[in-house]
Design a protein around this nucleic acid. Structure first.
Lengths: 134, 134
DNA sequence: CAACAATTGCAACAATGTTGCATTATTTTT
DNA sequence: AAAAATAATGCAACATTGTTGCAATTGTTG
């Protein structure tokens, strides 16, 4: 689905920043940071605009946010898989790439009585295929 | 083991900030943030001092750091369990508590060929027993 | 207790998160 | 097709965490 359609369906205005974010992320294999997206866009946007665009798209479940440790914040498109089941994320220590591991479903373990689980997040850290084989 | 012994064993000076961090964390059931620790200490320390103390203690594997999303950074003591196997962390959306789930061992899933796994992090989010039963 | 090495506090700066407000752009209505 | 309604943008400002350099201070050892 194209950015314009996506935005229309969820009652959001079709603005250049949103459009840029969606199409940049859609084209990328890995999750991207604000700066990585910024670099790939021709048009310049204020930091606040990015911030609010991300927030809106997150709220509407168009994208999801992955935070590794802190200071590493990346965004990826949601899709039928990521919406249905939680999935793991991989973080490469060397190149900093963050990849959604759609093929790895995440199941929540049993917790002690009384705990209510809403979400389970799995972040696998190490070396990605490219960095590992160098 | 007492803070002084711990610090001695790893060739660190016995300073009030390190001592305070270790004993505050040791007394707490949950992982604590810098501010939570700060509040519980009588003596005041500069932010930089906390920062460097945490760093040193992290390096020496006395404590470990848990980051939930961002902006939520907590510290917990390492112990024989946490050092041997990775363990899951629980984050309560309501009270913000972070708890080490020592009883839940974390195993890394199989990744595609070429990926090298160094660490697997599991964060379970929801309501803790106290908040859930209210 | 003197001497050395390590730690501390301060100043300064970077990155991300966050809000209010006036301006501008998109969408809807006439 | 232009005006009105609605929402997004850019800017300024500030909070929090992370980070480094440097001079002053403290802990440790002989």
């Amino acid at each position: 689905m194209k950015p314009k359609q996506i935005l229309h369906e969820i009652d959001l205005k079709f603005t250049p920043c949103r459009q840029g974010i969606i199409s940049t992320i859609a084209e990328s294999k890995n999750a991207l940071s604000e700066n990585e997206i910024k670099e790939k866009l021709d048009e310049k946007f204020d930091r606040t605009t990015f911030y609010r665009s991300f927030k809106t798209l997150l709220d509407k479940n168009i994208i999801h946010k992955i935070v590794v440790d802190n200071q590493v914040v990346k965004y990826a498109l949601d899709n039928s898989i990521t919406l249905k089941v939680h999935h793991a994320h991989f973080y490469c220590y060397q190149c900093g790439a963050v990849k959604c591991m759609d093929e790895i479903p995440v199941t929540s373990p049993k917790l002690p009585d009384g705990f209510y689980i809403q979400e389970t997040e799995v972040i696998i850290k190490g070396l990605c295929d490219k960095c590992n084989l160098k």
